[in-house]
């Protein structure tokens, strides 16, 4: 078995007996290894998410095995599966109920763009109603790809300022989605 990559200490100033790092980085690191997902699983991709949680792929290695079905406790909204127009307000509602910092991952073709379901009843990508951080292609994506997506979210979490959520750009983004 190959050596598992363990997270390194954040860059900081180390000296005799002290190690200082900026709070941003430390908290970013902490956040990235404690991303509790809210599995918004509507269809096929949800089944693959089960496989990702299963023993072979084991999402818990990244500290994200605690699914938070309550949006208040979740950090990462994983939208897996087709979102019909009937469902869209619910997705938005769940997103609004989540506390900052929150990330959104659109897993699979349907959630990202509608996939093959270019029909009157299907929302053509959830990025029309909520901002999406990571899109995972595939129909459904393999568990490996879902883990890739999670690692990308981790990367975003680590490289994001503690107060990015108060920046103008972010507020603008939310305003463009009619979210206040």
């Amino acid at each position: 078995m190959k050596e598992v990559k363990i997270v390194g200490a954040p860059d900081g100033h180390s000296g005799a007996g002290f190690f200082a790092t900026s709070l941003d980085q430390a908290i970013g690191l902490a956040r990235s290894y404690s991303l509790w997902p809210l599995p918004f699983a509507t269809s096929c991709c949800g089944i693959e998410f089960m496989a990702t949680m299963g023993a072979h792929y084991d999402i818990s290695r990244f500290g994200s095995e605690r699914p938070s079905f309550s949006p208040r406790q979740a950090d990462l909204l994983m939208v897996m599966g087709t979102i019909a127009k009937k469902m869209a307000p619910v997705v938005k509602q769940v997103y609004l109920q989540m506390a900052e910092p929150r990330w959104v991952m659109a897993v699979g073709a349907c959630a990202s763009s509608g996939g093959i379901f270019d029909t009157y009843s299907v929302l053509q990508g959830i990025d029309r109603i909520i901002p999406v951080d990571v899109y995972v292609p595939g129909c459904p994506p393999r568990p490996e790809q879902i883990i890739d997506g999670l690692m990308q979210i981790q990367y975003l979490a680590q490289n994001e300022s503690l107060r990015r959520r108060n920046t103008d750009e972010y507020q603008e983004l939310l305003t463009s989605y009619n979210i206040q």
């Binding site: 690191l29 956040r31 290894y33 404690s34 299963g54 084991d58 818990s60 900052e100």
Partner: peptide, 28 residues
């Protein structure tokens, strides 16, 4: 399965990560 093993050796920093995250999450 192997459980948390990325945050620190054998995931030993996992509680710290959880605590760090929770402290800095929006209080709602």
């Amino acid at each position: 399965r192997s459980g948390p093993n990325r945050a620190g050796w054998g995931g030993l920093l996992q509680p710290l990560a959880d605590a760090g995250k929770m402290f800095f999450k929006e209080d709602f």
